[in-house]
Amino acid sequence: MNAAGPGRRADSRRNRQRLLDAAEEVIERDGAQASLEEIARRAGVGSATLHRHFPSRQALLNAVFHEGVERLCRRARELADGLAPRDALAVWLEELTTYTTTTRGLAMTLMSGPGGAIAVEDSCHGLIHDAAARLVTDAEKAEVLRAEVAPHELIALANAISLASEGDPGSARRLLALALGGVLKSPPAKV
């Protein structure tokens, strides 16, 4: 009986990885609303196996995008530690917008939140919110951001731009620059 346990765990890990690999391919092509049945079929498993590993679409999306989102969050910390608050926020929002523009399905995932099956703090949505919150707090303290701007609003703005510019990072950067003109205070004039 003990021999079957580790075998099943290894098989379970392989199935989970096959599901993630298939999901990445299908989501890249079809976005966040990709067919779960097709993902299971491509992975060579049944839909019950998919749902055993990922109890909801949101849980699957979170797993697919988690590594990239963690990189964005590390980048937010690096920028906060290395740049002036205004620049750190602007650069990170541009990187977030560019990444979500070119990573099909991520903007929709971030807009819909964690979805109950995932702890908020472990979800892509929660991680991005925490990264944005630090940058927003720093920018507010430095008085370079309008006081009424909240982190979730900037994330929604970045996501909306990403959805409007899907696949076109240049357009996304231009739209973000226009939008930031409305939320960041002008830098002091040089004399």
Results as ranks from 00 to 15, higher is better:
3 A>L: 14
6 P>F: 14
6 P>G: 04
9 R>L: 08
10 A>C: 08
10 A>S: 14
14 R>S: 09
17 Q>H: 07
20 L>G: 06
22 A>I: 05
24 E>W: 01
29 R>Q: 12
30 D>Y: 13
31 G>K: 11
33 Q>H: 11
35 S>C: 05
35 S>D: 13
37 E>S: 11
39 I>M: 02
42 R>K: 11
47 S>Y: 04
51 H>E: 00
55 P>Q: 00
55 P>E: 13
56 S>K: 06
57 R>D: 14
58 Q>E: 10
59 A>Y: 11
61 L>T: 10
63 A>K: 00
65 F>Q: 10
66 H>W: 05
68 G>E: 15
68 G>A: 14
70 E>P: 02
72 L>V: 14
73 C>A: 11
73 C>I: 07
74 R>A: 10
75 R>C: 06
77 R>E: 15
81 D>G: 13
83 L>E: 15
86 R>N: 06
88 A>P: 05
95 E>L: 10
100 T>E: 01
103 T>I: 05
107 A>G: 02
113 G>Q: 10
117 A>F: 09
117 A>G: 04
126 G>F: 08
127 L>K: 15
131 A>R: 09
136 V>E: 14
138 D>L: 14
139 A>H: 03
141 K>W: 11
142 A>T: 04
144 V>W: 11
148 E>M: 03
149 V>R: 07
151 P>E: 08
155 I>Q: 09
155 I>K: 08
155 I>P: 01
158 A>Y: 08
162 S>V: 00
166 E>L: 13
168 D>H: 07
171 S>M: 07
176 L>S: 02
181 G>V: 01
184 L>I: 05
187 P>S: 04
188 P>N: 05
191 V>G: 03
191 V>Q: 03
